[in-house]
Structures are given as structure tokens and as C-alpha cells.
Computed example of a mutant assay.
Amino acid sequence: MTAGKTAADAEAEEELLRRLKSFEGRPAATAARAKDPVNEPMIRHWCEAMGDTNPAYTGPGATAPPTMLQAWTMGGLSGHTSRATAHDELFALLDAAGCTSVVATDCEQEYLRPLRPGDTVTFDAVIESVSPRKTTKLGSGHFVTTRMDVHANGELAGTHRFRILKYAPVAKRPPKPEAAGPRRPRPVVNRDNQGFWDGVREHKLLIQRCTACATLRFPWLPGCNACSSPDWDTVEASGAGTVFSYVVMHHPPFPAFDPPYAVALVELAEGVRVIGNITGVPYDKVRIGLPVRLEFLRVDDALELPVFRAEAG
């Protein structure tokens, strides 16, 4: 028995699982009929949406893409029937147990024969399994797996297994109060750019240099984009540069930022280009070719960023 769970809780959980397990093997649909036969317009729309230009799906002798298997069984917004199904009963039981949210987790398909325009599609569905309670990051709940056998003109064409999680969502924690207003978004630091941010903490703007061909590169990359060598070292930027291009941000407003402000693509003296904020002049005075100098701006107690201050004159 887990900590915090009483004997009564454990008994209730066992009874719920017993009732859930009673749905295993129950049919969710029997000899249900697709609303439309397999048809070329629906195949065309599917292929256009997926960007699939395979010639097997057009012209005389066309077949439907195999992954459309479930599409022919869907009932649309109006569904297939107004009668309650085993699925409805199962989901009502889970809802009553607090598992009010649902997310699709995975599906498996097996193709036995191609579907062709004109085929009449029927299908049988069965609730294959209901898992014991599982705990996920979304919350705790039960995985429900449904198997659907799809027939074309009475011949088995494929099998579709669809698994969902019905769960009780984790209560959201209230956001921590900000001590001095909202914080800037944190940069994404990974193994490929860790050295750059280590340099920033030391007030250095480090540029990668390929040790095979001496090409400088920025932003940081795991390999040289000139010769593909994975070997590199760094050089420290002098800090001098000019505005190569820029934008003035007016919208949308975002916490921790105070628009309007200028963001520039700065060409460093070393030849690489870096994106950063322009300080020292009003946003409407930033111009292409404006000389700038690197400086480091502390935006809060845990974050310092490289920015560029406009040079006098």
C-alpha cells in the first residue's frame, strides 16, 4: 500500500479496475458501415494535405494511401449512431472516477489489402484492453486500446489499433510571484553552445574557428559549414562592429520587454554576424552602417546578455 492511501482507497481502486477490466472484449462497433465508399476526391485531399505525390494514388488503377485506413471509418461530427456504445459506458465510468481528460498516445496499423475507389468499407471494433492506473506527467489514469478490423467489400483489408489515455489532470501550481517584474526568457543552453555562454559569463564574445580550414562561424555549430571538420577552437571578438540590418519591435507586447526597441544583425570586425539589442540611442536613430561596440547587459540576477551600444559620432 502506497503512502497516503488508505485501505478504503485501495479497495475502491481495485473495484474500479475490476469494472474497467469487464469492458475488455466488448464490441464497440459491429458491422458498422462507412458513410462513403472509397473515393478519389477524399484520396486527393489526403494526398494534398500530406504532400504525397506518389502516382499510385492517382489515375486508372489508383489505390488509397494505406495510412488512410482509419479515415474511411470516421463518422464525422454527426457520428455513426445515436445509440450508446461500450465506449460511451467506459468513458462515463472513467469520467466519474475523475479521469475527465483524454489524449491519444499511439496507433498501430496492419495492411492486408489495398483499398480502391468504389470499395464499400465496413468495420468491427472491440475494446481490447484497459490498463491498471498509470501515472504520467499529465496525470494518472488508464490506457484504453481499441482494435478495429476494417473490411472492403467483405474482405479483411487491415487492422487498426488505437490507444488513448483517459486521465485526471495534474492540478496546476500557481505561478511563483516575480520579485521585480517578469523575467526575460532563458536562452537554450546545450552541449553545442555551452562554451559560448561560458564566455558570456566571463564577459567574452567567443567565436568558433575551424582548426582545419580556419573558417570563423557564428552561431556555434557542432561542425564546420565550410569543410565539415568537427574540430575547432575559439577566438575572442574585439567587440567592434556595424549594424548590417535591423528591425524595430512594436508588437506583440511581451512580459519583460518594453517596446519599441531595436534588434540588429551586427557584423563584427571579424566578419561574422551576431543578433543583439542596440543600446545607447533611441530606436528610431538606428541605421544600417551604424558603428557599435559590444557590452554586457545584466537583465536580472541570473542572466547577462551581450548587446551592442552605438558608438558616438
Rank of each mutant, 00 (worst) to 15 (best):
G4E: 09
G4L: 12
T6W: 10
L17T: 11
K21Q: 15
F23T: 11
E24F: 03
T30L: 13
G51Y: 13
L77E: 12
S78N: 12
S78G: 10
G79Y: 02
T81N: 05
A84Y: 00
D88G: 08
E89T: 08
F91Y: 15
A97P: 05
T100P: 02
T100F: 07
S101G: 00
S101R: 11
V102Q: 13
Q109R: 12
Y111T: 01
L112C: 04
R116M: 11
V121E: 07
V130Y: 03
V130F: 01
V144P: 06
R147H: 08
H151Y: 15
H151G: 00
N153I: 02
G154Y: 00
L156I: 03
A157F: 04
T159K: 14
H160Y: 15
R161Q: 09
L165Q: 10
L165F: 05
K172N: 10
G181I: 05
R186N: 10
P187F: 11
P187D: 04
D192W: 13
D198N: 14
E202N: 14
L205D: 06
L205C: 06
A212F: 01
A212P: 01
L216Y: 11
R217D: 15
S228Y: 11
S229G: 05
A240T: 07
G241C: 09
T242Y: 00
F244Q: 14
F244T: 01
V247Q: 10
V248Y: 05
H250L: 02
F254Q: 15
P255T: 12
A262V: 06
L265W: 04
V266G: 11
K285E: 15
V286F: 11
D300N: 13
E304S: 07
